[in-house]
Design a protein around this nucleic acid. Structure first.
Length: 811
RNA sequence: GCGGUCGUGGCGGAACUGGUAGACGCGCAGCGUUGAGGUCGCUGUGGUGGAAACACCGUGGAAGUUCGAGUCUUCUCGACCGCACCA
């Protein structure tokens, strides 16, 4: 994945790109045509924050960051095709994006609708969720409210089913990611039901996945922005106050759903269509989302956790309508009954199982003409408008005569930016005196530009297509794109599991519909790498202390000026906790290979990686040992192949082939830590090979060369150096082919079998390949440790699993 | 709150489809090299008991399936990631 150019390379980047580099070098060595490109996710909020804080122009700031980071990246020795590098803030990049958007618009995949944003009343600007802290604006400290704005949306919901079905084809994705996306799309089957409201012309429509439980309904909860809530707030001050309170929660779903569940009772009652005379109270509740579903839910406290909690709080009826499996009525006072059963207290549904009752209830709802069965998705359309300066301009002009008018494609890139000032909060594009005023491309009358820019996920949803093109290729050439796409191996953080990866999948579908390409899925293989974490240190006076500045004496830690330091949990490296380690400093001191080796060696790529200086030293030592080993073997590099190999030589040759086999397997599965462990084992064995015996010289050299080749994707510089300088090879190591496994010498002559009694290990026996079961049983029984136990016991059974184990079962 | 993942020595982690738990590395200890320290080399290192042989315990916790469970099942505890305007 492309990085945000923050200005300084951090360990997370090093890890990400080191993993990618190993895979790229391995595939290259195996003869694949590898494209290993790079891009910068250059638009975004931090540039604007820097502009406000340091009066730096976002483009200047961003370009400097890119230059700085590129320098650092280059020192990592990555095999990146820099000639294709792109930056998303480059007009030559985003002009395509503007065209794509207009094509989406023409195809009916982009539309405008009103939607809520977090609003800072002091700054008079929109806040991102992360800028809302405890309900207050991060800079102003003012309580946040919500505001309704007209914004652009992309119709990702047109592809809900396709995005869901496509997940089954992503065989090389981690299952956790496809599961998360499946749940995010959230297909559910259920029914819409419209309830009449007593003494009112309003109707309340709800959606439920459990229409079978409608007889157990105790209340209906509507959102603060439901039309009924709005109508009520005009004359009811309690309701108006509650709506205000809900708005103070902001737009973050996490905040809304973790807030204490509160509701306010309205004077309205919904009329149960099945049960004449039954009146269901209507509440306005803070946990009902206004822009999801119908903005109203039905509460069945006997059979739903959240409804139960709400009913308890407001003392509502809890009527069980699903019996326990044994037919008993469940006790639902303390906890709801969620699982399956047969229906009770439900008139025409009584006696039916839940699944049948759902069908029957939908039939009845349809028959009464109050609703219908439906499939819904949790997935919402994607709001792409941002009230920000540093993003790709939405190429739209608003004309009083002509309405929404696309900026003509021939005038792309639409980027005629003047000097904008960040002297006040909010979007400079909006409050610039002249910029937004243009004449309508259709009627030439005065009109206004769209001042919003795109969500930066827009850029990241298709950048990989641009990377399929040569630097100077100006059109999104279908042939070039399709010759490389899909991305065979995509690598990035698990935090992108849903949004970025889902938006990219949507883009492929939408772009396909607009004729751009014929690709279904953007990423064939996906590897989600873990974070780089580090211990945190805090001094007695509560300050975070840099790891470098901690002095350890025995079990205690101190600051440089002698204050006591406590060691905290390992957390994601972050500036705010001072637990970062600067990759540049490591590279300067130990060299790139040490840094690469260490960051790849300990943890599997998909898990978090704990940085430790001691671990780094270990990698440094190994690099030195490898050099020493090579130096020793280089002395005998002219040795001829002996006519007959020593038993030791034969053994290490077999081990070498086992290693190649295992490394292939490990690299194919991205078990880079295991691959390194095996290479170290192999190199440990090679160190003990007796070089005083002349007949071992040739095989030692052969093994060393194999070791270098197998290690070269990880530590390319030292391996190449040994190859050239110590072994005086004419070729470059990087150009030599990947070693081949000789299958015929893989198998050992003898096998070690574990012998157990009742599943407990008692010893091991050696046997030859294909030895018969009876011999093995006899040999096992003769083991002293076994004999001692079984000699006066009756053997019930002996289990012999070929090549694995013997288990003697006796009472 | 909802969705997802993870949990193995002092530490990072190995253990392919259930079959010798702790590979490899870090740390630590002892010995050697050294004037000393570091580097480097060798040896040892899950816990408890034991001089030792060995025995017992041991994969967050509890239960279960199995000849056999780190691996499967159920419950439970904890940590982390995402939740639609950070990227």
């Amino acid at each position: 994945m492309m990085p945000y150019p923050s200005g300084r390379l951090h360990m997370g980047h090093v890890r990400n790109y080191a993993i990618g580099d190993v895979i790229a070098r391995y595939k290259w060595a195996k003869g694949h045509d590898v494209l290993h490109p790079f891009a910068w996710d250059a638009f975004g909020l931090p540039a604007e924050n820097a502009a406000i804080k340091h009066k730096a122009q976002p483009d200047v700031w961003t370009k400097k960051n890119i230059a700085d980071m590129k320098n650092q990246l280059k020192s990592l020795g990555l095999s990146i095709n820099w000639d294709r590098e792109v930056s998303t803030c480059d007009p030559n990049y985003y002009k395509h994006e503007q065209k794509i958007f207009l094509d989406f618009y023409q195809a009916g995949l982009a539309y405008r609708k009103e939607s809520w944003v977090n609003w800072d009343p002091v700054e008079q600007s929109v806040l991102a969720n992360e800028q809302v802290i405890d309900g207050k604006g991060w800079r102003s400290g003012a309580p946040v409210t919500k505001k309704l704005l007209s914004q652009w949306f992309l119709k990702i919901t047109d592809f809900s089913e396709s995005l869901l079905e496509g997940l089954d084809t992503l065989k090389k994705w981690p299952e956790k990611v496809t599961t998360m996306q499946r749940n995010w799309i959230g297909k559910s089957e259920g029914a819409y039901v419209a309830y009449d409201v007593e003494n009112s012309s309003h109707k309340v429509q709800i959606f439920t996945t459990r229409p079978d439980t409608l007889f157990g309904a105790s209340y209906i909860a509507i959102s603060a922005h439901h039309e009924l809530s709005k109508a009520l707030s005009e004359k009811n001050s309690e309701v108006a106050a509650f709506i205000k309170e809900c708005e103070a929660l902001g737009t973050s779903q996490k905040t809304i759903e973790t807030a204490e569940k509160k509701g306010v009772k309205t004077p309205f009652f919904a009329l149960c269509p099945f049960d004449e005379g039954k009146k269901i109270p209507i509440y306005i509740a803070n946990y009902v989302l206004s822009d999801y579903g119908t903005g109203a839910v039905i509460g069945v406290p006997a059979h739903d956790e959240r409804d139960h909690e709400f009913a308890k709080k407001y003392d509502l009826d809890i009527l069980p309508v699903v019996a326990l499996p044994d037919g008993q009525t469940p006790d639902v006072e303390e906890a709801p009954h969620i699982s399956d059963g047969t229906m009770i207290n439900s008139q025409f549904l009584n006696g039916l199982r839940v699944t049948d009752a759902i069908k029957k209830a939908i039939e009845k709802i349809t028959e009464l003409n109050i609703g219908y069965g439906a499939v819904t998705y949790r997935l919402k359309d994607w709001g792409v408008s941002r009230q920000r300066y540093w993003g790709c301009l939405i190429p739209i002009i608003y004309c009083n005569q002509c309405g929404i008018v696309p900026v003509p494609k021939k005038s792309f890139p639409s980027h005629c930016r003047l000097m904008f000032l960040f002297d006040k909060a909010g979007n400079p594009l909006e409050h610039h005196p002249t910029w937004k005023h243009v004449s309508c491309p259709k009627c030439n009358q005065p009109a206004k530009r769209e001042t919003d820019t795109f969500d930066t996920f827009f850029e990241s949803s298709w950048y990989f297509l641009r990377l399929c093109l040569e630097k100077n290729q100006d059109e999104l050439d279908k042939t070039a794109i399709e010759s490389w796409m899909p991305v065979n191996q995509y690598i990035g953080g698990i935090e992108h599991a849903v949004m970025h990866l889902l938006y990219s999948r949507f883009f492929m579908r939408a772009m396909r519909q607009c004729g751009y390409l014929n690709i279904k899925e953007p990423f064939e293989g996906l590897l989600t790498q873990g974070m780089v974490i580090h211990k945190t240190y805090k001094s007695k006076d509560g300050e975070w202390v840099y790891p470098d500045h901690v002095i350890t004496k025995g079990k205690n830690h101190y600051t440089e000026d002698g204050k006591e330091v406590t060691v905290g949990a390992s957390e994601k490296m972050s500036k705010s906790k001072n637990n970062t380690v600067d990759p540049q400093a490591i590279i300067d001191e130990y060299g790139v290979d040490t840094a690469r080796l260490f960051i790849l060696s300990d943890s599997p790529p998909d898990r978090d990686f704990e940085w430790s200086d001691a671990g780094l030293q270990g990698s440094w030592r190994y690099i030195n040992r490898l050099w020493a080993l090579a130096l020793k073997i280089a002395e005998v590099k002219d040795a001829k192949k002996p006519s007959d190999q020593t038993p030791e030589g034969k053994k290490i040759e077999r081990y070498m082939h086992k290693t190649i086999y295992a490394i292939n397997h490990d690299l194919d599965g991205f078990h880079l830590n295991k691959a390194i462990a095996r290479l170290r084992e192999f190199s440990n064995k090679l160190e003990t090979l007796d070089l005083s015996h002349q007949d071992n010289h040739h095989i030692a050299l052969f093994c060393l060369k194999t070791l270098l080749k197998l290690f070269s994707p990880f530590i390319p510089h030292i391996c190449e150096e040994i190859w050239k300088t110590l072994l005086e090879e004419k070729s470059f190591l990087i150009e030599t082919p990947w070693p081949k496994v000789n299958d015929t010498i893989l198998e050992d002559d003898t096998i070690t079998l574990a012998v157990q009694i009742n599943g407990k290990l008692k010893g091991t026996i050696e046997c030859s390949q294909g030895q018969n079961t009876q011999d093995i049983e006899e040999a096992a029984k003769k083991l002293p440790a076994v004999h001692a136990v079984i000699k006066d016991k009756e053997i019930k059974k002996i289990i012999v699993v070929p090549k694995r184990i013997v288990n003697i079962v006796c009472p």
